[in-house]
């Protein structure tokens, strides 16, 4: 690992200032939250040769003299780092208003894990926030960073999917709300527009019961090999509606769509749960890598779905 790149560092005091900086630096700007993804990625990043065509307006006229120079740059470089943590009012509040729970983008995993409202209505999210990384990481890592980073294995991503979160984003052009189902596009890609940042997440408690489980070889400091979140709306023993979020089994976090459909209107007996788990396994599209084979991941989806549903009901 290397030292960090040399970069210019900004601490905007207001959102407006932050938006201005983002506009000014465009693709050469990055916002900083906990830094547990960004700074590590920068330090780990390899150097690579970039052929640069030095054709400025002047010598473009005589295209033949256009000089190519070789520059060596980090693949994941940092030029202008804009720290969001000094913005007032601070973006890490967890607030309850009626049935609505708003979690600021800068709320840390530890904050979320310990918050009473989160624990009461969304135990799945509290558990995920309490499981990712290690205590040291959880104390600085934010949910905004986790979601913006958009790794398919992201700890809270498949949970937020099952919990039907809304992502509140802001930018120069104003604020908008993105449904979590429309947020993730590909590995590391999401539907944030250039210059936009995540401000908060909104969750609505509508009497559902939920649980989260993940598998990884180690008991801490390990990425999700398979993650499952079950969020169920029950009418007595009958399931009115079901969300099953899956992590690390596709290019983005996904819903186990056929399992969700199957559960609706059924009494959740052991057999029904077993069948739903099977269907969830069918919904997963995992790859094989050194962490696990696709076959094993598929199997884990089945086991974890079964266990997660049971835990949600318990």
């Amino acid at each position: 690992m290397n030292k960090l790149s040399e970069f210019d560092y900004y601490e905007p005091a207001t959102l407006a200032e932050a938006y201005d900086l983002l506009e000014k630096f465009g693709t050469e700007a990055k916002v900083l939250a906990g830094g547990t993804d960004m700074l590590v990625m920068n330090k780990k990043s390899a150097f690579a040769k970039v052929e640069k065509s030095d054709c400025n307006v002047h010598n473009r006229l005589i295209a033949d003299t256009c000089a190519t120079t070789t520059e060596v740059k980090r693949v994941y470089d940092l030029k202008n780092v804009i720290n969001l943590k000094k913005i007032k009012p601070i973006l890490n509040e967890i607030a309850v208003k009626g049935d609505k729970l708003t979690i600021g983008a800068l709320a840390t995993m530890t904050q979320i894990n310990l918050n009473e409202s989160v624990k009461k209505h969304f135990p799945a999210l509290a558990a995920a926030a309490g499981r990712m990384g290690s205590p040291l990481v959880r104390n600085i890592a934010t949910m905004g960073g986790n979601v913006a980073n958009s790794s398919p294995a992201g700890e809270t991503l498949f949970v937020l999917l099952a919990l039907e979160a809304k992502v509140l984003v802001g930018g120069k052009a104003g604020n908008r709300t993105i449904d979590i189902n429309d947020f993730f596009v590909h590995v590391g890609k999401n539907s944030l527009k250039p210059g936009e940042i995540i401000l908060a997440f909104e969750l609505e408690s509508t009497g559902s019961c939920n649980a989260y489980k993940r598998f990884s070889p180690r008991h801490s400091m390990d990425l999700v090999v398979v993650g499952v979140c079950a969020n169920l709306w029950m009418d007595g023993k009958v399931c009115k509606k079901a969300n099953i979020g899956l992590g690390a089994v596709a290019i983005t976090p996904i819903h186990a769509v056929s399992a969700e459909k199957y559960l609706v209107g059924k009494e959740l007996t052991d057999d029904v749960i077993k069948e739903a788990a099977k269907l969830a396994a069918g919904d997963a599209k995992p790859i094989s890598d050194i962490r696990a084979s696709a076959e094993y991941r598929t199997h884990l989806v089945e086991v974890l779905t079964k266990r997660t549903i049971k835990e949600a009901l318990a």
């Binding site: 008991h219 801490s220 390990d222 050194i290």
Partner: peptide, 24 residues
Amino acid sequence: MHFDEKGKLLNDSFTDYHLPTTLD
């Protein structure tokens, strides 16, 4: 240590070369 078919080591960092933690 996992190698690919061309002899490249795939897990030359602690992200995918696992050592036990205190919890294990």
